[in-house]
Write a protein that binds this DNA or RNA. Structure first.
Lengths: 129, 129, 129, 129
DNA sequence: GTGGTCTAGACCACC
DNA sequence: GTGGTCTAGACCACA
């Protein structure tokens, strides 16, 4: 359960954390009960204000993905939709795919080259991990 | 030259306009001289603040994609790099593809289903047009 | 749409705001589209930090009760469950009733005196308004 | 003398314990000398940190409701104001009633349905015991 | 004008 | 040790 934060990203830090945790939970990489790094740990590790991390955790709790264990920290919620089906996870990916399709259409690009470009990106992604 | 605006989208309205016009010009769908709908027309059609549309047009003018013709409104600039190569246009698509690849990785999705989902989205996109 | 804030209350200010707005929306006192006082107005009126108010509004937005109109402020959401039925509103009251029933049971109190006490409280409440 | 603990409740565990014991003593359901379950028993039975239970007992001792008997644990204090008058016990219930009245007002609910709902809750409460 | 984000630091409550 | 709340103040993005 390690987080990657990009301080210069257009989208805010707290949302980066929310997104990453949500996807990892959805992918089943964090079964219910998994303990998250404490607010202070994350804040120190990434040189970020604790409140920023706290805000992300609060939002994840509101979404029902995390649970607070008083005095102990946050854990992945018991009712968290762990390891959702491929179909469900594709649905989580839908907005990003939609954006690609729309932009590709406006750019007058055909299916072939776009798919090929995506394939390459995904292979790079796997190599990096 | 019709615009699609999503008021509830996470990215701001003015940027939606800039992005769409830029992509359509790059695709050669609007040859130099093509007249754009007036600020007032766009504002009225989409119930948007005219200043927002104006800001988008101003930004496109600054990028050299549009020209202001006195009394006539904005037109696609003569020096606009119309119909850029596929390679160039794919590069414009890169950030969106990057985002898909990253999220797919975090969701633990394989290449196959993702590519298939994108293919379907793109075919829908074409049908709608 | 005026808010009442009790700084010395055990439950936090931002939650007081959330609760009040939610109940007023549920009661149909604020039809969809009603504009809320701006963050800065509320903050100034109650000598509270703007972030505290902002936090409340953000939470109400996450619950789907409010919508952000960019540059204009927050309004009651179109899909907000306006003027819910008495049955629904009683359900919103359930936790508080539950608490009374539990405590009354532990105090060994009969139904009669408790109901009478509640009746008096509610009449006081109405007089104050 | 059995306790009911709600780990997910908004109010803290130690306060739940304090409240319940105080109300049961006030109701005369536990005459002076009644032995309370040991810290370890309560902690084990409810999967709660022993320190939390201990803190609750300490607070009740400070209030004069419990006494520590060496080697035997906590018992209800001799000077505990057992079986207080109905009037006194209603006063202990006042904050909860206040909360119901306030929320009902904001929800635009009339006295009738609220009283009826409370009546039902209290009858359920009695049946469960 | 609107809300959003982040920081630094203080204090509290709970376990 | 944990997270929560609030403040004061700065800066940004949007309309």
């Amino acid at each position: 359960m390690s987080l990657h934060i990009e301080p210069s990203s257009p989208d805010p830090i707290y949302r980066q954390i929310v997104g990453q945790v949500a996807r990892m939970v959805a992918a089943g990489q964090c079964p219910p009960g998994t303990r998250l790094p404490s607010v202070r740990e994350v804040a120190a590790a990434h040189a970020v204000n604790p409140m920023t991390v706290s805000k992300a955790y609060a939002q994840l709790e509101a979404q029902g993905l995390l649970e607070r264990q008083r005095g102990k920290g946050m854990v992945v919620a018991a009712q968290a939709p762990a390891s959702r089906s491929i179909r469900d996870r594709l649905q989580a990916l839908a907005p990003a795919l939609e954006e690609v399709a729309r932009q590709a259409g406006q750019l007058g690009l055909e299916e072939g080259p776009v798919i090929e470009a995506l394939r390459q990106r995904m292979q790079n992604e796997n190599r990096e991990q």
